[in-house]
Amino acid sequence: MSDADSNRKDTETPLRSHGLISLWTVLLVVWTVANSTVAAVVVLLGAAITMPIAWILTSSGSTWSRIRWTPDGLLHFSLYGATFLVELVKANIAMMGYVYAPRIDIKPGIVKVRTRLKSPIGRLALANTIALTPGSLVMELRGDALFIHLLDIDGIDAEAMTETIVRPFERHLEHVFG
């Protein structure tokens, strides 16, 4: 697939109602958690308030239309969450190693990597995740190319390292966001 094709990726027309319900559900869950109650009045009020918000936000763009609320999607979302937590702790320990080293001896650099994810929200999730994994930070997103700033690429094959950073998350996110 060429660059131009992946930028113009709205080949399968996403259902707007699907996106509306997805966003509405997410907002309603946030509302319920923030109020920490499931009293009927509060939930109904929340539904009434979040509905117009979801309506307005889904009226432009198909960002929310690609989430898959299937058991498979939910399973992979929890797997993704678990992987993410492990990587977050690893990232912090690695970062402390750099920070407390007597002499900071790193060779930073920016590498380019392509993602298989198609949907904007999937790419957003991937970019956010990479920012919190060891020694990497997404700087720019162009089409399907991610530009990742690596803290220390000395002595490591940049391509191989990229594979180990991106692929584990991509595998799970693919099932959730497409």
């Binding site: 977050l88 970062m95 930073p108 990497s136 803290l151």
Partner: peptide, 17 residues
């Protein structure tokens, strides 16, 4: 850290956890 980008990296991860 030596430059802005590595500083941002240090700031992001440790503050999140």
């Amino acid at each position: 850290m030596p430059d802005s980008f590595t500083r941002i990296q240090a700031g992001t991860k440790a503050t999140t956890l």
